[in-house]
Simulated scan of single mutants.
Amino acid sequence: MRRSFYQYLMTQRNPESTEEVATFANNAFFDQSFPKQAQSFDELSKYLELNGNYLLSMSIFDDAWQMYLESEN
């Protein structure tokens, strides 16, 4: 069974890091309404566009999504 994007993203958490994906992961951890079971780019993208005020740029999500896809292969 494929893991959700959130499960992957939590592997990138690092409170000490200033890397964009790590910062995204740290902030998503505290976002209680983040769609934790989602595996769809469109669903996650729409959510972050409306609720991801902690995400400085959607390109960070795009990078994290690409890393997620690569990790699942």
Results as ranks from 00 to 15, higher is better:
residue 53 N to C: 04
residue 29 F to Q: 13
residue 53 N to D: 15
residue 66 Q to E: 15
residue 21 V to P: 03
residue 66 Q to G: 05
residue 23 T to S: 14
residue 30 F to C: 09
residue 65 W to Q: 03
residue 63 D to Q: 13
residue 23 T to V: 15
residue 66 Q to R: 12
residue 36 K to G: 06
residue 45 S to T: 06
residue 42 D to R: 09
residue 22 A to I: 01
residue 61 F to T: 01
residue 27 N to T: 07
residue 50 L to D: 15
residue 52 G to C: 04
residue 69 L to Y: 07
residue 63 D to C: 08
residue 49 E to L: 08
residue 33 S to N: 11
residue 26 N to P: 10
residue 23 T to R: 15
residue 28 A to M: 02
residue 61 F to C: 00
residue 51 N to L: 03
residue 50 L to R: 13
residue 27 N to I: 00
residue 32 Q to K: 15
residue 38 A to H: 05
residue 50 L to W: 08
residue 54 Y to W: 09
residue 64 A to K: 00
residue 27 N to M: 14
residue 19 E to W: 07
residue 63 D to V: 03
residue 47 Y to C: 01
residue 56 L to R: 15
residue 61 F to Q: 01
residue 61 F to S: 02
residue 33 S to R: 11
residue 23 T to I: 12
residue 47 Y to Q: 02
residue 35 P to C: 05
residue 53 N to K: 14
residue 22 A to H: 11
residue 36 K to I: 03
residue 34 F to T: 02
residue 34 F to W: 08
residue 42 D to P: 08
residue 52 G to L: 05
residue 19 E to Y: 13
residue 48 L to A: 04
residue 43 E to H: 12
residue 28 A to S: 12
residue 51 N to Y: 11
residue 54 Y to R: 05
residue 64 A to L: 04
residue 37 Q to V: 10
residue 31 D to Y: 04
residue 48 L to K: 01
residue 67 M to R: 14
residue 39 Q to F: 09
residue 47 Y to H: 13
residue 29 F to K: 11
residue 23 T to Q: 15
residue 37 Q to C: 03
residue 38 A to K: 03
residue 65 W to T: 01
residue 62 D to P: 01
residue 29 F to M: 09
residue 46 K to T: 11
residue 56 L to T: 15
residue 46 K to F: 07
residue 41 F to N: 07
residue 55 L to I: 04
residue 44 L to H: 07
residue 51 N to M: 06
residue 56 L to E: 15
residue 54 Y to C: 04
residue 64 A to Y: 01
residue 25 A to Y: 08
residue 70 E to C: 07
residue 39 Q to M: 10
residue 35 P to N: 09
residue 57 S to A: 14
residue 36 K to D: 04
residue 31 D to Q: 07
residue 45 S to P: 10
residue 33 S to V: 09
residue 46 K to N: 12
residue 63 D to N: 13
residue 50 L to S: 15
residue 56 L to S: 15
residue 33 S to A: 07
residue 65 W to K: 03
residue 43 E to D: 13
residue 41 F to S: 00
residue 33 S to G: 08
residue 19 E to Q: 11
residue 52 G to I: 01
residue 31 D to L: 02
